[in-house]
Design a binder for these strands. Structure first.
Length: 418
DNA sequence: TCTGGGGTCCTAGGACCC
DNA sequence: TCTGGGGTCCTAGGACCC
C-alpha cells in the first residue's frame, strides 16, 4: 500500500544557523528578512520568550532581543539552499518519489505491506537527517497531502513522527483541528466556512453539501474536502520548471533617481535571467515594478507595467533592456522608491520556443550568456555582469548580522583550532 | 532610521472567432 | 417589448503557501 510522508524542517532558517554554532543549542535564535527589516524565523526558544509574529518589524523587537539575549542573523539564502539540498538527498535514499515542496519540506511516497512499518520509517528519516545534516525535522504520514499536513502538525506532540491512517485516528485528529489550520484554507476561506457553521476539519470532511463548498471555496476547497476524506486530489508532482520567476528587493534607502533604479532593475533582471537559463528555459514576457514605502505617510505610488518579447529569450541583455523599457513607462519624479522587482512570465523550455517569422533580431547572445554563466559558476555569482547593474550599488540592502557561508564559500569554511 | 521574497492555482470577464 | 449562440483564449486579481 502506498502512503506519503511530509517531512518538514523545524524552524528551518534558525536550525541552519545552529548547525555550525553548537554554542547556540537551546538558545533563542531569530533570522531577519532581507534588509534586516523584519523577523521571519524563530526557534521554539525564541517563541517561548514572546517572539514569533511573522514579519514583525525588527526595530520594534530590538529591546526584547537584548533582554532575552537572542542571537540574531541576517538571512543567508545561499547557505540555506545548500542545507536544503542535503536534506532532500537524504530523503531520496528512502524513496524514488520525492517532491520537494519548498526549501524546508518535501513529500515522500512510501510503500509498505503493513501500516505498522510506517512509524519506524518516519523515525529513521528523522534520525538520518539529524545524523547526516544536523537538521531537526518533523514527519507526518498519511494517505493524502492534506492529511499529511495535519499529521505533520501533530508530530510535534509525538516526538517528531505522527502516523494518521486509520479512520478512527484521522477523525480523532480532525475533530480538534480548526479549519484555519488546514493546508490551503487561509483566513478568508476560514471565515467563509464559519458562516456555514464549519469550524473544524472534521465538520468540513463530513459536510454533505459538496456543491455549496464548491461555490464558497471554488474547486480548491472542494479538493481539500476530498483530501480530508482520504481521496487523492493533489498528486505527487515532479519538480517541474518554474512557470514564473523573478527577483525583487527592498532598497537600503529611499531611491529617488532614475539612474539608480535603472541599476537596480538591471540587477534584478540579471538575477531573473540567470535563473531562467539555469532551468534551460526562455520567456516571452517581462514585468517590472517600483513602489514607494507603504509604511511611510505621504503620497504613495505603485508603478508596474510589462513588455512582450517578439521571440522568446533568456538573453540577459534583452531582459535588462526590457526592464529598462518598463521603467521608462512607470517612473515618476518626486517619489522616494523603497522597492523594485522584475518578473519573467510565459516561460517555456528553450527547445520548445517558437521563433517569430518577422522578428528583427531573433538571435540571442547565446554564446555571451554561456560564458557569463560559466564564469559565474566557476568564480562565484556576480563575478561578471552587465555594467548596467552599477558598481557600488549603494541602494542595496543591509545585512548587519550575516552568518558565514559555511558550506558554500571556501573562505568561510569552519576553522578548527588544535 | 528600520516593516521579506518567491512562488502556485483558480475564476470571472473581456476580446475575439464563426 | 423584442437585438444569436456557442466557443476559445487571455489576463487581472484573489487566495493561498512557505
Amino acid at each position: 500500500m502506498k502512503y506519503m510522508a511530509l517531512v518538514d524542517c523545524n524552524s528551518f532558517y534558525c536550525s541552519c544557523e545552529k548547525i555550525f554554532r553548537p554554542d547556540l543549542r537551546n538558545k533563542p535564535v531569530i533570522v531577519l528578512s532581507n534588509n534586516d527589516g523584519a523577523a521571519i524565523a524563530f526557534t521554539k526558544e525564541a517563541k517561548a520568550v514572546g517572539f514569533g509574529q511573522m514579519c514583525e518589524a525588527y526595530f520594534k523587537l530590538k529591546d526584547k532581543v537584548k533582554q532575552h539575549n537572542v542571537a540574531v542573523f541576517s538571512s543567508n539564502y545561499a547557505f540555506y539552499d545548500d542545507i536544503s539540498k542535503r536534506v532532500m538527498n537524504v530523503l531520496r535514499a528512502f524513496s524514488p518519489n520525492v517532491e520537494v515542496y519548498s526549501v524546508d519540506e518535501a513529500f515522500v511516497e512510501i510503500e509498505v505491506d503493513d501500516i505498522s512499518q510506517l512509524e519506524p520509517i518516519g523515525r529513521r528519516m528523522r534520525s538520518e537527517i539529524m545524523r547526516q545534516v544536523g537538521m531537526p525535522v518533523g514527519v507526518g504520514i498519511s494517505k493524502t497531502k492534506v492529511l499529511c499536513k495535519v499529521a505533520n502538525k501533530l508530530s510535534k506532540k509525538h516526538n517528531g513522527v505522527k502516523v494518521l491512517v486509520t479512520e478512527k485516528d484521522i477523525d480523532d485528529a480532525l475533530r480538534e483541528f480548526p479549519t484555519r489550520d488546514i493546508w490551503g484554507i487561509g483566513s478568508r476561506s476560514a471565515s467563509k466556512l464559519h458562516l456555514i457553521n464549519i469550524k473544524t476539519a472534521l465538520e468540513m470532511k463530513n459536510f454533505k453539501d459538496d456543491k455549496l463548498i464548491q461555490k464558497v471555496l471554488t474547486k480548491v476547497g472542494r479538493e481539500i474536502q476530498d483530501e480530508l476524506r482520504g481521496i487523492h486530489c493533489l498528486n505527487m508532482e515532479n519538480v517541474e520548471d518554474k512557470k514564473n520567476t523573478g527577483n525583487s528587493r527592498s532598497f537600503g534607502y529611499d531611491v529617488r533617481t532614475k539612474r539608480e533604479l535603472r541599476e537596480a532593475l538591471a540587477q534584478f533582471a540579471t538575477n531573473s535571467a540567470a535563473k531562467l537559463r539555469s532551468q534551460n528555459s526562455v520567456c516571452y514576457g517581462l514585468s517590472a515594478y517600483i513602489h514607494t514605502n507603504p509604511f511611510k505617510p505621504g503620497p504613495q505610488y505603485f508603478g508596474e507595467d510589462h513588455v512582450r518579447f517578439s521571440s522568446a529569450t533568456s538573453d540577459v541583455i534583452k531582459i535588462i533592456a526590457g526592464a529598462h523599457e518598463v521603467l521608462e513607462n512607470i517612473y515618476r519624479t518626486g517619489y522616494g522608491y523603497k522597492k523594485g522587482g522584475v518578473l519573467l512570465s510565459h516561460i517555456v523550455p528553450a527547445n520548445q520556443a517558437q521563433v517569430d517569422l518577422f522578428c528583427e533580431d531573433p538571435t540571442d547572445n547565446n554564446e555571451v550568456n554561456k560564458v557569463i554563466d560559466m564564469i559565474n559558476k566557476k568564480y562565484g555569482p556576480q563575478t561578471i555582469k552587465s555594467a548596467a547593474c552599477g558598481i557600488g550599488q549603494p541602494w542595496k540592502t543591509i545585512h548587519d548580522y550575516k552568518s558565514h557561508h559555511y558550506t558554500t564559500d571556501w573562505n568561510d569554511l569552519m576553522k578548527v583550532e588544535l
